[in-house]
Design a protein around this nucleic acid. Structure first.
Lengths: 395, 395
DNA sequence: CTGAAAGCGCTAACAA
DNA sequence: TTGTTAGCGCTTTCAG
């Protein structure tokens, strides 16, 4: 195997590996210091099994075009062209190159490509939290579609905090994502960080909790309709004093659901009692407090529904603690059907959101926005009311 | 503001943007084609609101060192050095550069850095699924620790399939992650794809479901102990025929839990009845089938626990359907406490896993492995038995 | 104390 | 048909 004298291929590899190892040891500049995480108090750790270690082998660098070129004794650009079936390259060389690439399991270095093309093929995704089924299911949908287009997901959580949302946007920007798909945190009531993205023409898509809908493609749920369905269902079941635990008032989802509450009551011919509409910040304690307040009313509600299942599960617990029967005395309905809604007793009626579709659609809009910077559109998906035990009085 | 004649800075920008737009239109090589995702049948979509669009503005490139250098009329290397407080650079220039960088919100391009340093500061994370609380909570832990070290998470799901796990490994490798943190899919019984990583010295950490523990750092739960606790608790509560729905036999977690089942029974002085130990593939139908089988036994079990909460919720549903009282007639305990265990009636006794700690510890081990390629260690964390209603007979 | 130049892996215009 | 070269943004020798 001939090597050019100034290259000395196999030894070069070893040297590079050693070099890069040495470089890592050196701690460099202080201008962008990496803050170190203090060792967390892991009271759970009990014992540690140490295993035998193996003798170190030199780390293998990923294969580059140069490696292939050297091995075949042709130029890098020929290899590059051969790999993409460039018509200029002779069939024999093309075949030889492609065979070797396959055999050596060559994959192009995305960093080099990214530097050249000014793109990372990564989409930043920011969700309020990672642990709610609603979001993780949407992430699944985004991931699936993105993967099919050869893109990766860079995931960030805002933990429902606007501050951390801003930080996440900035971090993803530092990582040079090609764009972002975002669900606002519950606190978010300023949008400067997103306006910056828009001004810089960085593709952006919102889902579920939206803002700036006249400039950003969005995927939303028809919240108004979903709530109207709930009211109608309650009304048909003979419930008359329908109470609603809503969300933070600045969120579009709260706004739309309240609108649905009002119009739903009106359509059903029911009076609106302001006492029975309470916003909350999605905290467990609030749910309990509000339930307490309602039960203390001279005319307590006979039906309760809320901004999400989590809140409603707490309401159910509170009702059960007081010996109030569901659904006989009080009907209950959740929102954004978690998969465990069927595990409660009684099983929880809830609106089911097409979460995977939300994710897929959001990703779809994202790619449209990439291709056409002027593209703006809000896609509205319908939620389904899934009737179970908690809202149906047996006759 | 003086520009070098061959550079013509502001116009260059415009040209670049136009160029890159033109480039995107061109579809290049066929050797690595990007498969296109067929438009999915989104039956949920109902209507689309089109919004007014805005006039296009030229996309702004991220700021580079060159931009700063040009603006200050100094060389790129001086800027680079000034930004990292290199002692050679005069304080005045250092200050001038840093001020401008701050004002312009400069961030170094990670692609360029990555290319140079041969690292992406990205960790690939593969989990069996994204939507289970157990995994998303662990991901949260990993993300938190990784972020504190300036690393990003590139997320992939194996969807419990070995094939997709292998594909994910390969995809993450293509993305040039610096290493991976993995929980095996339930199908995984061959490990070639991980051996390849090990041979190439790519840092790897397993959590929960492990393999190759003599070469890879791992974070595990003390499954044997967790199950022994369950048996002891059942035994103390007067339960005698304790049945166990286990997982796929090739997984370490199943193996350890079965070991705990046997030793637990022995310690409690109870006989082992092979009928009461059934493996399953974590499917809902299996849970129902197994429950049916057990109830048909001449001596049915008076206590049931299983590989995870999901399975056990199904068992509970099945028992309830048959009018069997929990916990009076049959005691029930879950595994890997999902946060909604308290939402069921009766509330589910379950083993609680320190999920965030698992994630944080896995990330910690990952960085240790990065620093020391010979590092191998299995950290074992303890699970807690959280006693609720489903396993306690009232007196 | 500062600048020029090489090189990380790749593509594409330009030369041969 | 193939090779040479410049350049994407950055760091780091080596020269001034």
């Amino acid at each position: 195997m001939p090597f050019k004298s100034h290259d000395s291929y196999p030894f070069c590899q070893t040297k590079c590996a050693l070099q890069s190892f040495a470089e890592k040891k050196k701690c460099c500049g202080t201008y962008f210091p990496s803050t170190f995480f203090p060792t967390p108090p892991l009271s759970w750790i009990v014992f540690i099994i140490s295993a035998k270690s193996f003798s170190p082998v030199m780390a293998k660098r990923h294969l580059s075009l140069k490696d292939l070129a050297t091995e075949l004794n042709i130029s890098i650009s020929t290899v590059s062209r051969a790999l993409k079936n460039h018509p200029d390259i002779s069939p024999e060389i093309t075949k030889k190159v492609q065979d070797l690439a396959l055999a050596r399991n060559y994959t192009p270095n995305p960093l080099a490509m990214g530097l050249l093309k000014q793109e990372t093929r990564m989409i930043g995704v920011i969700v309020p939290d990672l642990v709610t089924h609603f979001y993780s299911s949407i992430i699944s949908g985004i991931e699936e579609y993105a993967k099919s287009r050869g893109y990766f997901i860079l995931l960030a959580s805002s933990y429902e905090s606007m501050e951390r949302e801003i930080e996440s946007v900035s971090n993803l920007l530092k990582a040079r994502v090609d764009g972002m798909i975002v669900c606002l945190s519950k606190e978010t009531d300023r949008f400067d960080h997103f306006l910056r993205l828009i001004e810089n023409e960085i593709p952006l898509v919102f889902f579920d909790r939206l803002c700036l809908t006249d400039r950003v493609p969005c995927v939303a749920i028809d919240n108004k309709d979903a709530v109207e369905k709930i009211i109608r269902h309650f009304h048909e079941g003979g419930y008359r004093r329908i109470a609603f635990i809503s969300g933070p008032t600045h969120l579009n989802i709260s706004h739309d659901r309240v609108a649905g509450y009002l119009s739903g009551l009106q359509k059903a011919g029911l009076d609106f009692d302001p006492c029975l509409l309470r916003p909350c910040n999605m905290l467990v304690e609030e749910a309990i407090q509000i339930t307490d307040d309602w039960l203390a009313l001279p005319e307590p509600p006979d039906a309760i529904f809320g901004i999400n299942d989590r809140i409603i599960f707490e309401v159910m617990k509170e009702l059960r603690n007081r010996g109030i029967k569901i659904p006989e005395e009080v009907g209950v309905i959740g929102f954004a059907d978690e998969f465990h809604a069927t595990f409660s007793t009684p099983q929880l009626t809830s609106t089911m959101h097409p979460t995977r579709e939300i994710g897929i659609k959001a990703a779809e809009l994202f790619f449209k926005k990439m291709e056409d910077p002027e593209f703006v559109e809000t896609v509205v998906l319908q939620a389904k009311l899934v009737v179970r035990e908690s809202s149906v009085r047996s006759l």
